[in-house]
Design a protein around this nucleic acid. Sequence first.
DNA 1: CCGGATCCTCTGCGATACTG
DNA 2: CAGTATCGCAGAGGATCCGG
Lengths: 119, 119
Amino acid sequence: MDENCTVYKTVNVLSKKWNLLIIQSVYKSKNYTKRYTEIKKDLAEITPKILSQRLSELEQEGLITKEIDSSKVPIKSFYTLTNSGRELINVVKGMKNWGLKWKFPSDACERTRCRNCRL
Amino acid sequence: MDENCTVYKTVNVLSKKWNLLIIQSVYKSKNYTKRYTEIKKDLAEITPKILSQRLSELEQEGLITKEIDSSKVPIKSFYTLTNSGRELINVVKGMKNWGLKWKFPSDACERTRCRNCRL
DNA sequence: CCGGATCCTCTGCGATACTG
DNA sequence: CAGTATCGCAGAGGATCCGG
């Protein structure tokens, strides 16, 4: 495998820590949009620095868009999945189904819409 | 999302650096079996320490099995995908198809069996 | 209050060399 | 051939601070 291979490059982008969980967190929300603080609350263990870094990278990669409402205080940031970002949910679902089958069976997650992951 | 969620735990295992590429490298081989040096050659940029670490972890996770032929020198190690490891190829394929569509189009990889990734 | 930025610490990846 | 030993450094994590 050389570094020009699509698989190689894609895996390196997607398997960067937190990326798929951020995508999934935003995907769960209405209109595929979430605020910075909501994502941070959803991914309890992520630190603000890392979340900012990842969101910025995902924006540059074209997987999410950012909008800022500074019309009134407090200023609010909204992050929305692009079309490409939305389609990534299939990858997350693939991982979930594999995990349910082979590693981490969970009654809660078996349901079509788990309370945690909503997939 | 709490840390008991199947999605959370599964993503953390699978998105660890090199894991999916190792799985895919072994998957491409006859009988889903590859030797240490062959994997290292296939993933040119991986270092021996990291490859050893990852293989050991993947073995503990039950995704690969290891067999050593020490009957004659040089000693040879064989790594084989388990059933759960084989099924992970669907996740890799999902990533590949997403990457082809949105990020890294490639004529070579578009073919059903790319010379590099064989997926 | 919200959305970060800053500073510091520390795990863990990467590179090179070496060995049973 | 299939790894280990050692070292250096980037990036993840933790705590705190700050402008709007």
